[in-house]
Amino acid sequence: MSRRPLKHSETRAGWLFSLPWIIGFLALFVWPLVASIWWSLCRFDMISPPRWVGLNNYVRLANDVTQQQGFGQALTNTMYYSLLSVPLSVVIGILLAVLLSARLRGQAIYRTLVFLPSVIPVVAASILWLWLLNPESGMINYLLSWIGIPPQNWLNQARSAFSLETVEVLQNYTAGNPLKLFGSKDALILMTLWGVGNFVVIYLAAISDIPQSLYEAAEMDGASPCRKLLHVTLPMLSPVIFFNLVMGLIRSVQTFTSIYVLSEGTGAPGGSLNLISLELFLSAFSSLEMGYASAMALLLFIGLMLATILLFRTSRYWVHYRMVA
C-alpha cells in the first residue's frame, strides 16, 4: 500500500540528484551536437546570424582533401602522427612494462622515473622539448651524435622521416649531402613517447594479474622467455592492449596543447604541425568560419567513430578475454 508513494519519491529523488548532470548533458552535449550539425550547413561568423549554405562546407572540405591544403594537410598530418605514435606507444609501453615487472632491485624507483614524465604539465613539457630539440644546442642531437647520427632539424623542418621525399634525401646523402631525416611531426612523436608512462602503469597492473601458474606451465614445456612473452603475456594482455589502442587513438587525434605551444599556435613550419584539432581551432577562432569548422568537427567525429568500430571489429580476432570459471 505504501509502495506507490515510496516509488514515486524515489523517482523524484533520482531526477533531483541527477539534475545538475542532466542540465549539463542538455546544455553541454545535446544542444552543442544539434547546433554543430545545423551550423555545419551554414555560413556563420558569430557576428551575424547563421546563413544556410547547404553542403558547401563539406564540398570545401572535400576540395581541401584532394588539393592537400588546409584541412587536407591537417588530415594527413593527423594520420601520420596517429598511425606512428599509437602503435609505437603500445609496443614501447609493453616492453617497458615487461622490463619493469622483472624482479630487480630498485624496481619501485625505476617505475617512478618512467612514470614521472607523464605528470609534467603539457605546457611545461613542450617548453622543455623546444629546448631539447634545438638543432644547434639541444640534448637530443647531442645524444644522437654519440651513435654517429648527424644533427637533425626537428621542429625547424616540415618534411617528416616517413615521406616520399625521404628517398630523395637518402639519394642525396649517398652523394655527400647532409642527412636531414627527422622533422617536426617526428619531434612531436618523440615527445609523446616520453609520456608513455600512463600506458605503462595500465600494462603493469594487467601483468601483475596474470596467474603465475601459466608461466610455470610454460616453463614445464620448456618455453624460452621470448616464447613466454609471445604466448602467455601478450595474449593475456590483449584486452588491455585493445583498450590502450582505442584510448591512444582518441587521445592522439585530440592532441592540441603540445602542437599549439611547439608551433606558437601557427602549425609551423610549413603547416607541418597543423593537426586537425589546431586547424579546427584556427578556422573557428582566427578565421571566424564557425560553419566550416563545425563541418570539420563532425567529419572528425564520424571518422573517429568509424576507426573505433573498425578496431572493435578486428578485436575478436586477436583479443582474448579470460574465461571466468
Binding site: 533520482g14 568537427a297 567525429f301 567513430m305
Partner: peptide
C-alpha cells in the same frame, strides 16, 4: 536511488565520453 531511469541515464553518461571536444567547442563558446 532506486528509480527506473537510472540505467539508461547512466548509459547516456558513458555516451558523453565518446564525444570529442571538437564537436562541443564552438557551441559551448
Amino acid at each position: 536511488v532506486d528509480w527506473s531511469g537510472r540505467r539508461w541515464m547512466f548509459g547516456l553518461v558513458i555516451a558523453t565520453m565518446l564525444l570529442p571536444w571538437h564537436i562541443t567547442m564552438i557551441p559551448r563558446f
